[in-house]
Structure formats: structure tokens, C-alpha cells
Design a protein around this nucleic acid. Structure first.
Length: 518
DNA sequence: TTCCGACAGTGGGGTCGCAAT
DNA sequence: ATTGCGACCCCACTATCGGAA
């Protein structure tokens, strides 16, 4: 199969807004592939290379050779070329990688170059990712969608399922089971404004502490223990404390889901940045460990000694977890079965915050573990801060935001009458707001640049954020975490905006109470 | 007919390790 | 030593399609 066929399919997927039409086109491409080719085609139409990392990003793709006139690249050939690029390492690697990259792109036609570039950057922007490939795969092979989804969830990836389905048909699906040692995509939570709203959606539920660390999925088979992140990266060697903790548990085969985070000597959580630094440190783990020891707190169990628990209810899975792991290794929780318990849930949430944690996650007691899906069964609730800040500059948007000023540079009022930048945001803006602010900011522009405009600091925006974190990038030494626009405030003047001191107060309060971010 | 769940897109700050300067 | 780059941790929110109610 030629890469050109995949490039054409991708272009047609991008050309329609109808999801059903996208799925049909993906199905057609998969049908035309051999099982071996389907591995690559399924990845590419989901916008991913088969290689986890290639060392190729924006900078490497700025200048490329002119496209080939006629398509000659085979799909499997292109995949092998990326493998060769990914494997380059050591001194002189950049030059060698460059040479291989140029050789690949020189053989690609214009549509093929566009595909390869989008794949390398993870920005194919065709309006379809893995979820639609899974639908297309079910369509192409006449397999029940729910069963294909189940196989993908248990395998932790779509391409191997595509290969098996094309080679053997639906009968292959039964082979895909949870395997201890191979990670599944973790179940994700959506957001609720407050505990009452979350309980209203979830029904009878467990309310769990939300820890501000990194998600860990731990697999144990005897003495063999592996730790995976949310994106299924293997971080076993970086988190020895987690391995040691799980080794103490009384089960031979185990799959656990939880959170790892750095705690201070007082048992309170350290800022997220310290946990992230620990998880990122690979070279000298013992030193990093001595500086910021990690703890693991688990909230779910997916497998125990030969028994899969994915379809068991949240209530049952927790019972199994509680029988295995001591309280100190589990996240705190309360169970709420009716409206009369709402007060207890709110009190629990307040105590979680007082202990320095991020908030709570409300989990429906009757829900199974839906790997890889962001369903309504888990709802996170976090407190939100708001401030009135001033727009200092704005960047031109890309994609569907092309032509609109999108990303706002935010400043707080300084002591000297100037403004101090605290971060940027593009979030929370409706199309109408984008349109309005583009006009408004162009009128305030004092400098036009390729990236956007610098403006007179006059437009006030109400900004929501989760907390204030230490920053080396911004002049006040602080940056907003997860800032988003609530609304424009043209009714306010910049002199009425919040001050840097107000922001610092949030920052200092968080550090004093040990709160993770705010 | 209306509602809402699932998806994709649009980017944010911080951190590490590596290769080049 | 410093810098630029790539990869990954954390992530919020809106628009849209199409099935559910």
C-alpha cells in the first residue's frame, strides 16, 4: 500500500465535518490494507507515528526538501524510515537525523509531506483521532464496536487490534484480555462545578481526595513490578518507592491505579513541580529520591491473582482494594448514598483542601472501570480563584482560530503603575468573544508583530485559575496555573484591576497551608 | 424535537535530558 | 556552562456531531 493512499484518506477525512463520513473513509483505508500495513494505517489515521518518540519536532521541520512529483513511498517503508530516524543517538545525532529526515521527505509528494509533518508534530488536524479509527475498524471488519473498543482498551493500543482483526476477523477479539505487565489506558474524570452538582450526576458515590501528583498504574507479577504513567510510559526505574510499596502487598498478581506525589516531612503534599521533577529525573534517582521522597496512594484495583475486575462496580473494586492495601496506601474517601449525606460530602471536601490537596473526585458506586474514557462516572471538583487582570498583548490564533487574536498575555497591576505579566491564556473564549476581542485589541494596538500585537494595557479580563505557582519565566516569580477567561470587563478600567500583591497573597497562602497549587 | 455524551481542537506552565554552541 | 529542542507531566474549555430521550 502506498503512503499516498493514506495521505489521500487523511485529506478526505479532513474535508468532511460529518463523523460518519470520516469513519467510512477510515474504514475504506483499513479495508485496503494488509494486516501488517493496518498497524501503520491505523496509527497514521489516528494522527500518530508508530514510534513513541522520534527526536523530530517543530525546529527540525522548518525547512524541508521540495516534494517528489510522483508517489513511490510504501507505507511500511515510511514506517521503517521513521524507526531509523528515532534510533539515531549520540554525538553527531542531529546531522544524521537531519540527513535521514530529508531523504524521507524528498521521496514524499506534497500531500504525503503534509501527512508526515502532521504525524511528527502530533498535529494532523483532520478532525479524527484514535476514537474514530476504532469506529472505522469495527466498520471495516464488521465487528461489534463495543467489542472492538473493549479489545483496544485491554491491549492499550489500536494498531495491534487492527492487525488481528484484519488477519482473523472478529474471532480474534476474544484473545484480547487484560495482561498483567501491559498497561491499559486509565479511566479519566470530567469536571463538575461543585460537590452537589457532582453528586447529582453520579448518584450514590464515593467522594475521594484528589491528590496533585502523577497518575500511576502499577502491575505486579511476583517480584516483577512495573509502573506506568497516564500515557503508558514505563517509569519503573524512576519511582523505586512505588515499586517497594507494592512489593509489600499480599498478592502475587496485581494491577493497581493511583497517584504518586512528593510529601513533606509533615505529611503534607509538596508543590506539583517537585513531584514532576522527581518523575522526570532519570539519571540520578537516589539523589532525587533523597531530596523529594514520593508516596503512592491507590484508589482502584483492576486485577488480583487471575481475576479481572474491570467490569466489577466501583464499590466492589474498592472492597477488594481495601482488603489488599493498608489505609496509608489508599486515598481517603467517604461514601455518599443519598441527599442526606451531602453535608458530609461537603465537609470531607473541605477537609481534603485543609490537608493541602487539590479537591475531590466523585465516583459513581455502580460504574465499571471504563479504561481510556472520560465518562460521567468520575467527576473532579476543584476550587477556583478569580482575578481581574489586564491584557498586555495577544497572539494570532491558528487552525480554526486563524485570523482571530486568541492567546492573551495577562498582567496584574504593579506598585509603580506598570503591569507585571503572570502568564497567558486562550481558554474559555467563545467564537463571539474571540471576534469581539480581536476588534477591541486591534484598536488598542501599539505594536504589530508577526506573532500578534502589543496593546495599551487597558482591557480588563476576569480570569479563573487553579492556583499560583513558582515561575522562573515571569518577572514576579509567579505564574497562574490553568488560567482561563471568564469574561471581558470593558466596564472596568485598568486602574481597577487586581494587583501583583493580590496574586502574591494567593501564592503565599498556598505555600503556608501546604496547598499544592492554590 | 430537544438534550447531552463523546470528540477534537486550541493552546497553557514546568521539568528533565541531550546535543550543539 | 549555557541554550535550544523534544518529550511528557499536569491541564480547561468550546464547538460540533449524532445518538438518546
Amino acid at each position: 500500500m502506498l503512503l499516498a493512499a493514506v495521505a489521500a484518506a487523511s485529506a478526505e477525512v479532513a474535508a468532511t465535518r460529518s463523523r460518519r463520513a470520516k469513519v467510512e473513509r477510515i474504514a475504506a483505508a483499513l479495508t485496503a490494507a494488509t494486516p501488517a500495513e493496518a498497524v501503520v494505517v491505523a496509527a497514521y489515521l489516528a494522527g500518530e507515528l508508530t514510534q513513541r518518540r522520534t527526536g523530530v519536532g517543530w525546529a527540525s521541520l522548518r525547512e524541508l526538501p521540495p516534494p517528489a512529483q510522483a508517489p513511490t513511498l510504501d507505507v511500511l517503508e515510511a514506517d521503517r524510515a521513521w524507526s531509523a530516524i528515532a534510533e539515531v543517538a549520540g554525538a553527531g545525532a542531529q546531522g544524521e537525523r537531519r540527513r535521514l529526515l530529508e531523504a524521507l521527505f524528498a521521496r514524499a509528494t506534497e500531500p504525503e509531506q503534509r501527512l508526515l509533518r502532521g504525524l511528527a508534530l502530533g498535529e494532523l488536524r483532520q478532525g479524527a483521532l484514535d476514537a474514530l479509527v476504532v469506529e472505522g475498524l469495527a466498520r471495516a471488519t464488521d465487528a461489534p464496536l463495543a467489542e472492538v473498543r473493549r479489545a483496544v482498551m485491554l491491549r492499550g493500543a489500536t494498531p495491534p487490534v487492527a492487525e488481528a482483526l484484519l488477519a482473523e476477523g472478529s474471532a480474534a477479539l476474544a484473545r484480547f484480555r487484560l495482561e498483567v505487565g501491559r498497561p491499559v489506558h486509565p479511566m479519566l474524570a470530567s469536571t463538575a462545578a461543585d460537590v452537589a452538582e457532582a453528586l447529582g450526576k453520579a448518584g450514590p458515590a464515593a467522594v475521594e481526595e484528589k491528590l496533585d501528583g502523577i497518575r500511576v498504574q502499577v502491575h505486579r507479577r511476583g517480584d516483577d513490578i512495573a509502573v506506568f504513567t497516564r500515557t503508558l510510559d514505563d517509569v519503573t526505574s524512576r519511582l523505586p518507592e512505588v515499586v517497594e510499596a507494592v512489593r509489600t502487598l499480599p498478592a502475587d498478581e496485581l494491577v493497581l491505579d493511583g497517584e504518586a506525589l512528593a510529601l513533606g516531612a509533615d505529611g503534607r503534599p509538596r508543590p506539583f513541580q517537585e513531584t514532576a521533577a522527581r518523575t522526570g529525573s532519570r539519571v540520578d534517582v537516589p539523589t532525587a529520591r533523597a531530596r523529594a521522597p514520593l508516596s503512592a496512594a491507590f484508589f482502584d484495583v483492576l486485577h488480583v491473582d487471575g481475576e479481572d475486575l474491570l467490569t466489577a462496580s466501583t464499590a466492589e473494586r474498592h472492597d477488594r482494594l481495601a482488603a489488599l492495601a493498608p489505609e496509608a496506601m489508599r486515598v481517603r474517601r467517604v461514601v455518599v448514598t443519598g441527599p442526606e449525606d451531602e453535608h458530609a460530602a461537603a465537609a470531607f471536601s473541605a477537609s481534603a483542601l485543609a490537608r493541602g490537596h487539590e479537591g475531590v473526585v466523585v465516583k459513581a458506586l455502580d460504574a465499571p472501570y471504563e479504561a481510556g474514557r472520560r465518562g460521567a462516572a468520575w467527576l473532579k471538583v476543584k476550587p477556583v480563584h478569580t482575578l481581574d487582570l489586564v491584557v498586555l498583548a495577544a497572539e494570532w490564533g491558528s487552525g480554526r482560530r486563524r485570523g482571530w487574536l486568541s492567546n492573551l498575555h495577562l498582567g496584574a497591576r504593579g506598585l509603580d503603575g506598570g503591569f507585571v505579566m503572570l502568564g497567558k491564556t486562550f481558554k474559555g473564549l467563545t467564537d463571539a468573544m474571540l471576534q469581539w476581542q480581536t476588534t477591541a485589541l486591534l484598536e488598542l494596538a501599539v505594536e504589530q508583530a508577526g506573532w500578534g500585537v502589543v496593546v495599551r494595557p487597558e482591557l480588563v479580563v476576569e480570569i479563573a485559575f487553579d492556583g499560583v505557582q513558582a515561575s522562573t519565566r515571569y518577572p514576579a516569580g509567579m505564574a497562574l496555573r490553568f488560567a482561563r477567561v471568564i469574561r471581558h470587563r470593558p466596564d472596568k478600567t485598568a486602574a481597577e484591576a487586581d494587583t501583583v500583591d493580590a496574586v502574591r497573597a494567593v501564592f503565599d497562602r498556598a505555600r503556608a497551608t501546604g496547598e499544592s497549587s492554590g
